[in-house]
C-alpha cells in the first residue's frame, strides 16, 4: 500500500515535466523492481488512478483526478492508522 502511495505522490508532486514520470524515474523513487512496478502501474491505470502518456516514444505516467482523490484519502487514513501505531 505504501508503494502505491509513493508512486501516486511522485507522479503528483515530483514529476519532472507535464507529460508525467517515466518508469525509470518511478523505479528510483519507489525503490521497487521493474517487474513489480510494471504490475502495479498496470493496475493503477486500469483503476483510473494514473494516466498513461507517450512522450518522445517513452511511456510516462501522470496522476488523474481520481488518483488525486485517492491520494488525499490515503494520506488521511494513513494518519489514522499511524495513530494506532499501525501501517496502512
Amino acid at each position: 500500500m505504501s508503494i502505491i502511495g509513493d508512486i501516486l505522490s511522485t507522479t503528483r508532486d515530483e514529476a519532472p515535466d507535464e507529460s508525467g514520470a517515466s518508469v525509470t524515474y518511478l523505479i528510483r523513487k519507489a525503490n521497487v523492481s521493474y517487474g513489480r512496478l510494471a504490475k502495479i502501474l498496470e493496475t493503477l491505470v486500469q483503476q483510473g488512478l494514473l494516466e498513461q502518456t507517450t512522450s518522445d516514444r517513452a511511456c510516462k505516467y501522470r496522476i488523474s483526478s481520481r488518483g488525486r482523490d485517492f491520494l488525499q484519502a490515503y494520506r488521511g487514513f494513513r494518519e489514522f492508522a499511524d495513530s494506532f501505531g499501525l501501517r496502512i
Binding site: M1, I4, K39, I40, T43, Q46, Q47, L49, R66, D69, F70, Q72, A73, G76, F77, E79, F80, S83
Partner: peptide, 15 residues
C-alpha cells in the same frame, strides 16, 4: 478528527 471523509475508491486485490 484528522481524516477528511472524501472519495469512494477501492483498489483491486491484485496489488
Amino acid at each position: 478528527s484528522q481524516v477528511p471523509l472524501r472519495g469512494g475508491l477501492k483498489l483491486g486485490g491484485n496489488i
